[in-house]
């Protein structure tokens, strides 16, 4: 697993209180990991803080799964 992927996973496990094994690349935050709209906003904020990036709202809307998050961050984090 990439460094980004493991840091993303750690944030998700912490914020959503889910088991590590549930955090697969295909897992949807809302459908599989029990996040509501506020949880999702908080996750995006945590990613921004952890990776020192700004994720615009229109981009954030497209981040629905763990894999989406990892891909976006790997592309945009410096």
């Amino acid at each position: 697993m990439s460094d980004v992927a493991s840091r993303v996973k750690a944030i998700i496990v912490d914020k959503l209180g889910v088991d590590e094994t549930e955090v697969t690349p295909e897992a949807s935050f809302t459908n599989d990991l029990g996040a509501d709209s506020l949880d999702t906003v908080e996750l995006i904020m945590e990613f921004e803080k952890e990776f020192n990036i700004a994720i615009p709202d229109d981009q954030a809307e497209n981040i629905g799964t763990v894999g989406d998050a990892v891909a976006y961050i790997e592309e945009n984090a410096k």
């Binding site: 506020l38 906003v41 908080e42 904020m45 921004e48 803080k49």
Partner: peptide, 9 residues
Amino acid sequence: PRLSPFFIP
């Protein structure tokens, strides 16, 4: 502003 979405609720 990096306020938590849970701040108000």
